[in-house]
């Protein structure tokens, strides 16, 4: 693999076993994966194949059983967590986009996005300024004072993407981000993610079932039975 992969995410021989004894489930049996900064890769596979489990391991919300994960030079996991504060890791290094936008209903659009820099200790004014810039870039700047419930599904998803991007994380994990959207909007979201990946040198992993968007990926990882297989996609 080329040099630039050293700066992105690297996963080697990652395994995850749920439970123990007779009822143990080996959800991941040895996953290898690399995503470079600025790259968007697809992760596809049938239901129950371990996609969500892999995202949760990468997102540092569940602990893998063995293997290695690195982010740039930094080893995050090597048979044990190598980082003391996983909460800060999630806040500063990883952006999340979910199937549903999961915006905080009692915060307006700006503060939904600005909350992350605020949590990281940035002043309110600076956080809001950053949020507004991103909202403008994602074409929802005119809804900045609205409450999430007043937004359409597509607008909400764009706000969620702004939230994932606002702390300039090196990694974004997206779990079926286009599922609630029609094909036109789904493609817009993927193009947005690609733009953002390029603009901010973010490594983006998109878990999807969505036939419409699969052709847009340049590289695709297929996960079957807990193991990954890399393929070249149709995207350019």
């Amino acid at each position: 693999m080329s040099e630039r992969y050293n700066q992105g995410i690297r996963i080697e021989g990652l395994t995850k076993r749920y439970g123990a004894g007779d009822t143990a489930v080996d959800a991941l049996k040895g996953v290898d994966m690399q995503v470079a900064p600025g790259e968007v890769v697809g992760l596809i596979g049938p239901s129950g194949s371990g996609k969500s489990t892999l995202l949760k391991c990468l997102g540092a919300v569940i602990e893998p059983s063995a293997g290695r994960m690195t982010l740039g030079e930094q080893i995050i996991y090597e048979d044990a967590w190598k980082i003391p504060d996983l909460r800060a890791l999630r806040r500063d290094k990883i952006g999340f986009v979910f199937q549903a936008p999961y915006l905080i209903p009692f915060l307006d659009v700006t503060d939904n996005v600005a909350l992350l820099p605020m949590l990281a200790g940035r002043p309110n004014a600076e956080s809001r300024k950053r949020a507004l810039e991103l909202l403008e870039a994602l074409d929802v700047g005119h809804r900045a004072r609205a409450m999430p419930s007043q937004l359409s599904g597509g607008e909400q998803q764009r706000v969620a993407i702004a939230r994932a991007l606002v702390n300039r994380p090196p990694v974004i994990l997206a779990d079926e981000p286009t599922a609630p959207l029609d094909s036109e909007r789904a493609l817009t979201v993927i193009h947005l993610l690609e733009d953002m990946a390029r603009q901010f040198s973010t490594a983006i992993i998109v878990v999807t079932h969505d036939e419409k968007i699969i052709p847009t990926f340049k590289r695709i990882y297929t996960i079957r039975d807990g193991r990954t297989h890399e393929e070249a996609g149709e995207g350019r």
Partner: peptide, 16 residues
């Protein structure tokens, strides 16, 4: 609960 899970995921402290 869902919002709280999201808040935790994006790095909100338990104390907060």
């Amino acid at each position: 609960i869902r919002e709280i899970a999201v808040l935790k995921l994006i790095g909100t402290k338990n104390r907060t």
